[in-house]
Amino acid sequence: MKTLKELKQLRDETRKHMNMRQKGTQTRIQVGMATCGIAAGAREVVRRFMEEIERKDLSDVYVVQVGCMGECAFEPLVEIIDTDGTSTIYAEVNEAKASEIIAEHVVRGKRIDKYTLQKVKM
């Protein structure tokens, strides 16, 4: 049975290994989580991004849930804001695409043009 005491132990263990975050030099992943996003699968996309970030030990990347991004038909929409402020919006993101976006865009710095909102809308 899960207990708060055990959660506390887990917290102490994980904090030993946690990297200190440097605010301001982070890549920001914004996932649209309004009705349109949630209905299209954004909950699972958020989870996948967080799992990948941890798996690849990307301490300078974080995920944040945002409201409606205005292109409801192309949800789940994900905006990646790189450390230099460049913004890329990906459309119809699913779990597999989320893993690819982390590997290609976030880790290797190569935008995946075919998944961008601009391309998907065409």
Partner: peptide, 9 residues
């Protein structure tokens, strides 16, 4: 941000 904490919850 730690997956094992999220999984525990």
């Amino acid at each position: 941000s730690n997956g094992s904490i999220r999984r525990y919850i």
